[in-house]
Amino acid sequence: MTAQLTMEQVSGALKEYGSAEQVRKNRIRVSTDTQKILSAIKAAQQFLDCDHLILISCTDDTGSFGLTYHLTGPHRTVISLAVAVPRESPQVFSVSDILPPAAIYERQIHDLFGIVFSGHPGLSKLMLNEDWPDGEYPLRKDWKPNKANSYGGAAQGGT
């Protein structure tokens, strides 16, 4: 366990990706955009020694989706990299090749929010059952079960 990161260190290392703000003790948030997320994570790994991805959280902000990558390392400071993904074309680069644990979280977000992670090795159904209808993302705010659709739980099919 090494000394905690200071605001200056973080904003210095990530200044080209966006402005950093101290959310609370031990938590620094950097807002960036979807084009820069891959290089921002690489920079955090390289200069800030971030070796652990806590989670990728996803929120539905009506006009867009908010993705936040929470990273930490031996300094135990949580660095949150936030991006906004447009709702009309929800697409963002996959970070699963530089952060292997991200693969599971990305598939989960794809399933529940319908965000497409380009470059992901296998973005198939993850959380929902096999006969869940395509194009229905239950964690979106505007999702309502459609009476005409069957959402599975059928006796036939599946293993």
Binding site: I54, L55, S57, C58, T59, D60, T68, H70, P100, P101, A103, I104, Y105
Partner: peptide, 24 residues
């Protein structure tokens, strides 16, 4: 990960469990 919006309900609750992190 919790987001609140000024009401008595959470706007979003994202749970990452230890087992999910350990499967890989």
């Amino acid at each position: 990960f919790i987001r609140t919006n000024g009401t008595d309900k959470a706007d979003r609750l994202d749970i990452r469990t230890p087992t999910l992190a350990n499967w890989t």
